[in-house]
Design a protein around this nucleic acid. Sequence first.
DNA 1: CGTATGACGAGCC
DNA 2: AGGCTCGCCATAC
Length: 115
Amino acid sequence: MNRTPAGPFRVIWRTVARIPRGRVATYGQIARMAGLRSGARTVGWAMRALPDDLAIGGRPVPWHRVINAQGMISPRHDGPRGEGSLRQAGRLRREGIVVSRSGRIDLARYRWDGR
DNA sequence: CGTATGACGAGCC
DNA sequence: AGGCTCGCCATAC
């Protein structure tokens, strides 16, 4: 039934699920908060592998609130203007986060402090 | 089981 | 600032 892989993905998804609306977190930040030995890249894998319909705590995992340490939406295989990136920018703006035309987000302003 | 890949990140030019 | 290398480690093949 549940095709959620074992291993670190589950812990990562639970951590991402805690990011409040209107806030963002970086891949490395999530990795550290999840207490993983594995690093930021594994968080990237977990986002890629995230099933669209997966919900935790009764609501979908806010994958769009995870960005890279440079405050940018990480490019997918189809580039920074690809479908996934545009979708992420749209979702962030919809919760009031300012995303520049080049896909930049002010981390000092929007970064989730983990509390 | 060895290699390649990647929604990363830190360090170095 | 921008680009490159390398470490990291879960998956794919």
